[in-house]
């Protein structure tokens, strides 16, 4: 009964209501975008974007401009530049992204150290401040979520074919570079908008963990994206509620709940995994490949 009263009192707070709604929307958005980003091996890209966002915020503070206004164009520009670098440099993407994100982090910390008033606020930037989310922020996130759902649903064929093989996609009429760029820009905007709630260090968890859990639980692609979005939103709600009840930091609480959800998904998928139903005739097998088992390719 005491617990229920505590939950009620937490839910009665307007800032908590905004935070829960913000968590639901941000978590859902992260899970939805993450379901595509993980399969396209762009999860590290979202991490690098998150770190670069800190540089965008720092520049905004240094120049005396509202950081939120700087962040979205900065993240988009940064994403497009990194995308060009990855495609033109001939270096491995993970190494290049590592260079980019550690350098931007270094510049951001140096820039922040020059601003007296922001020295105490770096923890908020790193781990987010979802409790400080405003109705205006919520409106922006909601619009972005609707736009992301509409774009990804309408272009699902293009997104899936592009993930499987860009030449296959192009041959079957998909504007591969156009859709790739659109997705990168969308991911950059989502990361930029979510930074305030989630923080620079934890943003990649919002993109990667629900998507990986969804991948373990789903067989159909459309279901996988929905499950990932649902897990993202649901874990954010539970984590924030736990944070409100225990007075622990909100962003890390959400990530811990996401991790618990991932472990649960892993257990469920292990328990439900059956041996391949139809044994493949020997003449169909590739020599040395062994029996066709889930995830064996």
């Amino acid at each position: 009964m005491t617990d229920l009263t505590a939950i009620r009192s937490v839910l009665a707070e307007p800032f908590m209501q905004r935070a829960l709604l913000g968590g639901l929307l941000t978590g859902g958005l992260g899970g939805l975008l993450g379901s595509f980003a993980v399969l396209r091996q762009l999860s590290f890209f979202s991490d690098a974007l998150g770190h670069s966002a800190l540089l965008g915020i720092s520049l905004g503070i240094l120049l005396g401009i509202n950081p939120t206004l700087v962040l979205i164009p900065f993240a988009v520009l940064f994403a497009l530049l990194v995308n060009q670098l990855v495609s033109r440099s001939g270096l491995p993407a993970d190494a290049l992204l590592n260079i980019v994100y550690s350098t931007s982090l270094a510049f951001a910390v140096v820039a922040l150290s020059l601003v007296e008033t922001y020295r105490g606020g770096i923890q908020q930037l790193l781990f987010g401040d979802i409790l400080g989310i405003s109705w205006q922020d919520l409106a922006v996130i909601a619009v972005l979520l609707v736009a992301a759902i509409a774009y990804l649903a309408l272009s699902l064929r293009a997104q899936v074919l592009l993930t499987l093989n860009s030449d296959l996609a192009g041959a079957f009429g998909v504007g591969a570079s156009r859709h790739h760029l659109a997705f990168i820009v969308l991911l950059a905007v989502v990361v930029a908008v979510s930074i305030k709630a989630v923080g620079v260090l934890l943003i990649s968890a919002f993109v990667v963990i629900p998507a990986c859990a969804g991948r373990l639980l789903s067989r159909r692609f459309s279901v996988y994206s929905l499950v990932s979005a649902g897990l993202g939103g649901g874990c954010a709600l539970l984590g924030l509620l736990g944070s409100g009840l225990t007075n622990l930091p909100s962003g890390p609480c959400v990530v811990i709940v996401q991790f618990a959800g991932f472990l649960l998904a892993l257990m469920v998928s292990q328990m439900s995994r059956r041996p391949t139903a139809t044994a493949e005739p020997a003449e169909h097998r590739i020599p040395g490949a062994g029996p066709a088992a889930p995830g064996s390719r």
Binding site: Q41, A153, R157, L168, R215, S218, R220, F221, S222, G295
Partner: peptide
């Protein structure tokens, strides 16, 4: 095809994308 790890796409779903025409649609 880039089918690393467990790729959540059934054979029917994939073949269905071969049926759909290029462009934005909700045929699936």
């Amino acid at each position: 095809l880039a089918l690393q790890g467990r790729f959540p796409l059934t054979v029917s779903e994939f073949v269905g994308f071969g049926f759909d025409l290029p462009g934005l649609n909700l045929a699936w």
